[in-house]
């Protein structure tokens, strides 16, 4: 597999800037996912950042060409895999987790920091999937202020196959449903960071990606980066918020193109 085939396309990048996440199915050997899940089943304490020492097969996930391709696309060629990582286990019977953004309210609209959420086992609807709210990555809201939200139109449960890595903008709102199954749900969270500004696009970019005629019939359903950037409104927010989001997306796109002052 050539390195270029693992890079994101213009459409992928536009979808990421609109929705704040990008899913990758890692084709590691099936027994690697199984082996990781079984090792996690057997842990009796959380090793914190040392999870990759305790479960070294996780390094295959971090070093996978598709992981590298997505990270290079989103964070530039010199991205950093940060030392913090965490095993998030939702045991059978565990309740839900409220909406939150990670960290404090020092937010960064640019795609400079990513969460990588790896699931070593199939996640079903009843296993307490992570739930994300596409399009919330530019919203700066104290987690306390989210406490009166429960279900939000457009929220997406990450019901995924074993070996899925979900890359999410660090500020994307997320929570977790209750695990009503009789199996634990495992997720390993990794953190990734940009180390330098782009001088040029670092994904599979075509020069006219945003300059094609708009499709006013398909709107954001068209597989066209310009349409997606212009019309995407996953939360169906008001016109004033939508216009602000569009401006922020365009700033991010310009930044990723290498226009540092945008």
């Amino acid at each position: 597999m050539s390195e270029a085939t693992n890079l994101m396309s213009d459409v992928d990048m536009a979808k990421f800037l609109v929705n704040g996440y990008h899913l990758v199915q890692l084709d590691v050997a099936e027994d690697v996912n199984d082996s990781i899940a079984l090792e996690l089943d057997g842990l009796d304490s959380n090793p914190g950042d040392a999870i990759t020492d305790v479960v070294p097969d996780l390094l295959q996930v971090l070093k996978h060409p598709k992981t590298h391709g997505a990270l290079q696309s989103l964070l530039g060629s010199d991205y950093e895999i940060q030392s913090h990582r965490h095993w998030h286990c939702r045991p059978a019977g565990m309740g839900h987790m409220q909406w939150h953004q990670d960290g404090t309210n020092n937010r960064d609209r640019r795609p400079n920091r990513l969460l990588g959420l790896y699931y070593p086992r199939d996640v079903t609807e009843d296993m307490g999937p992570t739930i994300i709210v596409p399009g919330t990555q530019f919203r700066n809201a104290p987690t306390d202020r989210m406490a009166t939200y429960t279900n939000i139109r457009g929220q997406i449960p990450l019901i995924v196959k074993a070996g899925t890595m979900a890359f999410a903008h660090y500020d994307l709102w997320h929570g977790t449903a209750a695990n009503t199954s009789d199996a634990p749900r495992h997720m390993i969270k990794f953190l990734f960071r940009r180390t330098g500004d782009n001088k040029a696009p670092t994904w599979n970019h075509e020069a006219d990606a945003l300059n094609k005629p708009r499709d006013w019939n398909l709107l954001d359903k068209a597989e066209d980066a310009g349409n997606i950037m212009s019309f995407g409104n996953p939360l169906k927010v008001s016109q004033s918020d939508h216009y602000k989001e569009r401006a922020i997306r365009q700033e991010c796109w310009n930044y990723l193109m290498g226009n540092v002052d945008s």
Partner: peptide, 10 residues
């Protein structure tokens, strides 16, 4: 005219 925070009007 730039920043966005919570979702909707409660």
């Amino acid at each position: 005219d730039r920043d966005i925070d919570v979702i909707g009007y409660e």
